[in-house]
Simulated assay, not measured.
Amino acid sequence: MAEKPPISKILNSIKRDPDYASGHHGTDHKVYKPIDCGLGSSPFGYPEEVDLALKQISPNLLNEYPADPYSRGLAGLVRERFGLRKSTSIFFGGTGSYGLLASLLSDVVCVEAIAKGVEVVGVGPQFTNISMLSRRAQIPYHHIAPKIDLPYEEKIDLLIRRRAKATSPAIVYVDNPNNPTGDAVNMDTLYKLTEATAGRDLLIIDEAYGDALPDVSSAFRLADQFEHVVALRSLSKTVGLASPRLGYMAMSGLTAEAYKNLELIFSLDTVTNMIGRAALEPAVLARFLPQVRQMTASAKLNFVRVLNDHGVKTFDSHPSVSILLARAGQDFFNNLLQVGIQTENGQTFKPTHPDMTNRYVRFRIPACEQEAEEIGRRIDDINSKSV
């Protein structure tokens, strides 16, 4: 057998979970007009102040390096919004909260801890990329897999009880609101989880959909108080700015000191920084977010009614979060594709829960009643073909 070329000895051989790529985005249907309920971007736009900021872009700005190389100006806005101490560190990244999560696992966790068997621990189903990012960092990922229809509060309570009894340190990952269900736990539950992990674990709370909830529900305040807590956010979801890929996170104490040594300069380009300054202004969000939450809750209530009326089971989900988990038939994902409806395949989340298959889909809610009703009619078409 021929010897492998030298380059193969230094390249990483880690691959994606096969389930991660089991679905595709976009439909090319000749009968049905495509309806995209797949990616979790907001159907309700973004703050109008962003358009005003974009008008300030000039060729000179694009020709120079960013004037705020570590986005310290944006950090002040985040601290003001959540009432954080000046000593609490806010870090930014240009690949969303997803990129910051990757950096936390690959860069911050030390090789000694990995060698001693530290694991990433979560409760499934959850953001499926946590499995792939853990393997990317060469850290084993272990998920608790309770019944999918168990309320999210009870799932997290199960995690709390297990961590309270644990003797070995772990990286505990929780998404709140949960992806794919859109359900959320309250601050009391997050505080209990924080206490159960204090002094032993690194607790990562991913709030990619967190802007759908009131600010008092945010784990950013926990990151301000406890040095083992890291809270992540993104502008991609409720704020409606998926394209700039602006993510940010809060941490304090020893965890923040460790990340400061690894922070990349110019992690945000000038245009993204300008967008962030407009969108993260506390007064802007105080006006914009309640409107989006109200529109989301109204659209979601109607959409859940439509799905239930057409025989689709929906799972517990917070009213103002734009995603929800649903189930129908043996291959709901591909059946929906056949009638031009794009969703996120439940099979994508299988690395975080063994029961997640293409019977399940994650919907991003449609923006209007007419689109919701059209989805209902197309589900009727699916049902009529299966009779």
Rank of each mutant, 00 (worst) to 15 (best):
L11G: 00
A256L: 04
L337W: 04
T194I: 03
S58G: 04
I205L: 07
E257Q: 11
R79C: 12
T189D: 00
L336N: 08
D331E: 12
V304N: 07
K9C: 03
S236L: 12
V271S: 05
T128K: 00
E64G: 04
A326Y: 02
T167S: 12
A75S: 15
S106R: 08
G73E: 15
G124T: 06
I375S: 03
A208P: 00
A256Q: 03
L241N: 05
V174A: 00
A297P: 08
G240V: 08
L104C: 07
S252I: 05
P354R: 12
S97Q: 12
A219F: 05
S87K: 13
G124Q: 08
G340F: 00
P34L: 07
E344A: 13
N179Y: 10
Y248I: 04
P66G: 05
S134V: 09
D107P: 01
L84R: 01
D211E: 12
P47Q: 06
L280Y: 10
R161A: 10
V123M: 09
I35R: 03
P354V: 02
H310S: 13
E119Y: 00
Y191N: 09
Y46A: 11
V123T: 11
L105F: 01
H25L: 07
G311H: 09
I156H: 05
L158F: 07
R327F: 02
H353C: 08
L77R: 06
I171T: 06
Y70V: 02
G311Y: 09
P140W: 06
A283N: 10
Q56K: 15
